[in-house]
C-alpha cells in the first residue's frame, strides 16, 4: 500500500485501531509473553538464572520423560481417551439436538432441555463425588439396580476395564445438554420454507434431516469439530482427577494428571515445562489435522 493511503487509513480508523491495540496488548501480555517460557523445556531451569541464563540441556528433559514408562502410559492413555471422546462425545450432542428438535410438545421439550443443562453447572469436584456415590458398591443406585436384576456388583470406578467408559458416559451426561445448545440453535436457524417445500413434496422425516437439516448445520458442525478436536487432548483434567484412583492409572491416567501427580516434586521445572510443551504441540497437531479434514470434506474451516 502506498504510504499516503496507509496514513489515511490509520487516521480514518483511529478508534478502531485503538480498540485493537488495547485488545492486542492483552494478548501479548497474557497469551504470548508466557509462551517464551517454553524455553524452559530445553533447560535445566533455575529461577536464579532466569529463562535465558539457565543451562540449556537440549532434549534431555524430553528424553527423561519418554524413558519413564508411566509417562508413556499416560501419553498413550491420553490418545486413546481423546479418540474415544471424538467418536462418542462429539456426535451425541448433535443427535440429541435432533431428538429435542423433533419433540412436538413444547413444555416437555423445555423441561428436558432445562434439566439437561443443570449438570453443566456442577464442577467435577462435586460431580465426581456424586458419581462416586451413585456408582458405589453396596449403596450406589446403579449397583442396586444391577442386583435387583440378579447380577453381581461391579466396582465401576475401580476397574480399569470400565473406567474409560465411565469417563465418556459421565462426561456426556454432564455436558450433552449444554453442548447441544449450539446445534439446536443452528437447526432452528434453517430457513423454514425449505421444510415447507419438502413437506409439499412428500418428503419424510429422515430425508428431511439428511437433505435439509444436516447440510444446513454443516458449517456449525465443522467449526465445532475443529474446536472440539483441538481441545480434546489437553482437556479433561478435572474429570479424570476427581474420578481416578491408583487402581485405574494404567488405563485412566492422562498427561495432565500425570504431570500434577508425579512431577510435583521434581526440582527441575524444565521437565514439567517439557511435558506441558508436548501437550500443547500434540493439541496443535490435532487442530491442524481436523482443520485439514474439514477442508477435505468441502466445508469451511478456520484456516
Amino acid at each position: 500500500m502506498k504510504k499516503a493511503s496507509v496514513w489515511l487509513n490509520l487516521k480514518r480508523y483511529r478508534y478502531v485501531y485503538l480498540m485493537l491495540a488495547i485488545v492486542l496488548v492483552w494478548y501479548i501480555a497474557f497469551a504470548y509473553a508466557p509462551m517464551f517460557g517454553l524455553i524452559m523445556s530445553f533447560e535445566k531451569f533455575s529461577f536464579a538464572k532466569g529463562f535465558f541464563g539457565s543451562e540449556l540441556v537440549g532434549l534431555n528433559n524430553f528424553k527423561m520423560l519418554f524413558s519413564d514408562r508411566y509417562f508413556v502410559q499416560a501419553f498413550k492413555n491420553t490418545f486413546a481417551i481423546s479418540f474415544l471422546r471424538i467418536v462418542f462425545e462429539f456426535p451425541i450432542p448433535i443427535i440429541f439436538a435432533f431428538m429435542i428438535n423433533e419433540v412436538r410438545s413444547k413444555p416437555f421439550r423445555s423441561v428436558i432441555q432445562n434439566i439437561t443443562y443443570f449438570p453443566h453447572f456442577f464442577n467435577w469436584i462435586v460431580f465426581g463425588g456424586l458419581i462416586g456415590s451413585v456408582l458405589a458398591l453396596d449403596r450406589g443406585v446403579v449397583n442396586g439396580i444391577i442386583q435387583l436384576f440378579g447380577g453381581s456388583q461391579i466396582d465401576f470406578l475401580g476397574d480399569s476395564r470400565y473406567f474409560r467408559t465411565i469417563l465418556i458416559v459421565t462426561n456426556l451426561l454432564k455436558e450433552v445438554g449444554w453442548n447441544s445448545i449450539i446445534y439446536i440453535a443452528a437447526i432452528q436457524g434453517i430457513n423454514p420454507t425449505l421444510y415447507e417445500s419438502a413437506d409439499l413434496d412428500g418428503v419424510n422425516r429422515w430425508q428431511k434431516i439428511r437433505y435439509i437439516s444436516l447440510p444446513g448445520i454443516a458449517p456449525t458442525i465443522s467449526i465445532m469439530f475443529i474446536l472440539f478436536v483441538g481441545g480434546v487432548f489437553t482437556q479433561g483434567f478435572d474429570q479424570v482427577y476427581n474420578l481416578y484412583s491408583p487402581v485405574v492409572y494404567d488405563k485412566g491416567d492422562i498427561l495432565s494428571t500425570y504431570i500434577v501427580r508425579t512431577l510435583k516434586e521434581v526440582p527441575n521445572l524444565g521437565v514439567q515445562a517439557a511435558a506441558g510443551f508436548i501437550n500443547s504441540v500434540i493439541s496443535m497437531l490435532f487442530l491442524l489435522v481436523s482443520n485439514w479434514v474439514v477442508r477435505l470434506m468441502g466445508q469451511e474451516s478456520i484456516y
Partner: peptide, 26 residues
C-alpha cells in the same frame, strides 16, 4: 483494517497453543 488477516491469525493461534502453566506462573 491493515493487517486484518494477520491479527485474526494472531488471535486464533492463542486458542490452541499456550506456554504452559509454569511459564505463566513465573
Amino acid at each position: 483494517i491493515i493487517g486484518r488477516k494477520f491479527i485474526f491469525n494472531f488471535i486464533i493461534f492463542t486458542m490452541f497453543f499456550n506456554g504452559g502453566i509454569i511459564p505463566l506462573y513465573i
